[in-house]
Deep mutational scan, measured.
Amino acid sequence: MQRVNMIMAESPGLITICLLGYLLSAECTVFLDHENANKILNRPKRYNSGKLEEFVQGNLERECMEEKCSFEEAREVFENTERTTEFWKQYVDGDQCESNPCLNGGSCKDDINSYECWCPFGFEGKNCELDVTCNIKNGRCEQFCKNSADNKVVCSCTEGYRLAENQKSCEPAVPFPCGRVSVSQTSKLTRAETVFPDVDYVNSTEAETILDNITQSTQSFNDFTRVVGGEDAKPGQFPWQVVLNGKVDAFCGGSIVNEKWIVTAAHCVETGVKITVVAGEHNIEETEHTEQKRNVIRIIPHHNYNAAINKYNHDIALLELDEPLVLNSYVTPICIADKEYTNIFLKFGSGYVSGWGRVFHKGRSALVLQYLRVPLVDRATCLRSTKFTIYNNMFCAGFHEGGRDSCQGDSGGPHVTEVEGTSFLTGIISWGEECAMKGKYGIYTKVSRYVNWIKEKTKLT
């Protein structure tokens, strides 16, 4: 034993070699072989497995989906700052455009905790909710729209109204504003409101030439003092309507412009014939205590009207009353817009006519005020429907199939267009061939041609 100890002390290297040989010859039971080890760690190889990531292109799944990435790591994937920024906006807080917040056709661009709407022409605001041009839906104005110097929408209202708090709607500024039905039992019968379409306001006024200088022999019209197929109006439903009495009662109609003036057809009036105007009328054979009678003290036909040349060209006249009318729910003026808007309103496509005229061709006159909704007829169809001249200051309205029309005794009465609950004068009943005849239409004086003249002559002093 002493000898062994001496050998170990003198030859430590020998001992180490012996131990190493023993270990190498022993069977290893701690580690699995290569094949079995792979069965336990069965993990798919990654895209760049075996390579240094710093030297390969980034992978979106590896960089940002398996674990949260930084902007720089995302930049490695896209290799483009702009594309990385677009991805980053949604990656950080989701897609803010998912709810489609942009209105009126706006395009949404996502941002971090926010979004941006790219608005089409005519709109602005956070969600493109603000109209900035009158060309689109009248700028959301209830009545009139004008573009300011910086191309912003400025709404306005006709006389007797003021802008509401929203700067879009119009509200009454006087007790009985024009064009409004205020009798409670008839307010439910107000005709369907007309909503502004998209309009090209630059070209809204037709490029028409008034044929002022045409000389033409007097034409022989049949029954051209021209509501057939209409309905009984309720008291106060058309408070701007008046009836004219002269040699015979209810020979023509008219509309209240203001307390002192009536507008009617020029062919209705004769110099030297006494005319009485009755406002607030409903049943011409009954006294309903809503009527107001006034005498006409002055007749002003349009300066281009000449019955000797043509009885229905420039067929418009103004009547001055001896005493002002007292405005109330049964006696209310009709609204008159400017030339541009009167023309736009007419193009809405349908209007209402009213009167006490004959209820059928050569038949009896109506006792109760009649009204009828009539569609506008395109000019080409209008011209083809008659052998008589249709001037540019006239328009056609009615039904091709016949059966409904204005008729004798309705002449001078109103053709009105309702705009968001307020009625505007767009025409004056003038003439036609018979009444409600198939293929024939009622012919009306186009008020847009005469609004400046009306307003100039009827100013209240």
Rank of each mutant, 00 (worst) to 15 (best):
E159C: 03
C108F: 01
I454H: 02
K339G: 07
C18V: 10
S184A: 13
H303S: 07
F196S: 12
F221Q: 09
T271L: 11
E259F: 03
K260S: 01
E79C: 06
T276F: 04
R404Q: 05
W453Y: 02
G272D: 02
F121Y: 13
S107K: 13
T85D: 11
N100K: 14
E142F: 04
G21Q: 04
H361R: 15
C435K: 04
N100Y: 09
H267E: 02
A366S: 04
E159R: 05
K109C: 04
G254D: 00
D232P: 12
T158P: 04
N151C: 04
C170F: 01
D93P: 15
F395R: 02
T215R: 06
Y305L: 02
K39A: 13
I344N: 07
L383S: 14
C141Y: 00
R83I: 10
N213D: 07
E193N: 13
F176W: 05
R364L: 08
I40F: 15
D212W: 09
H400L: 14
F251N: 06
E286P: 06
C252Q: 00
N100H: 14
P375E: 05
T426K: 00
I256S: 00
C145F: 01
A250E: 05
L32R: 10
D110L: 15
Y341C: 03
W453K: 00
I214L: 08
L369H: 09
R162W: 06
K311G: 05
V368N: 06
W88N: 15
F424K: 00
T209H: 12
F78Y: 15
N100I: 04
P175Q: 07
S25T: 15
T458H: 01
R180T: 04
Y391E: 14
Y450W: 01
C69R: 03
L23Q: 01
G403A: 10
P324A: 07
L383K: 11
N452K: 10
P120A: 12
Y341N: 15
G272Q: 02
Q241W: 09
F238V: 07
D378H: 07
F31P: 06
I214E: 11
P120F: 04
E434K: 13
N245G: 03
I428G: 01
S350Y: 06
M6H: 06
E340F: 14
I454C: 01
G160M: 02
W240I: 01
S423C: 05
R180I: 04
I275D: 01
K446H: 05
K234R: 12
V263T: 02
C102T: 00
D150Q: 10
P177S: 05
N100G: 04
S385F: 15
F87E: 13
E61S: 10
I136M: 15
T458G: 03
I7P: 13
S187P: 11
A317F: 00
W356D: 02
T225R: 07
V278Y: 04
G427Y: 01
L369A: 14
V359G: 14
G106R: 02
V199H: 10
I256K: 00
H361F: 07
N147C: 07
M65C: 04
T417H: 02
V263E: 00
G355I: 04
E116R: 05
C119G: 02
F395D: 00
I299W: 07
E10S: 15
T461D: 14
K387Y: 06
S187H: 07
L20D: 01
Q90C: 07
C97H: 02
N213P: 11
L32D: 15
A380T: 10
E231M: 11
I334M: 01
C268L: 01
E320G: 03
L103K: 09
E434W: 10
S448E: 09
K188R: 08
G21A: 13
G349S: 10
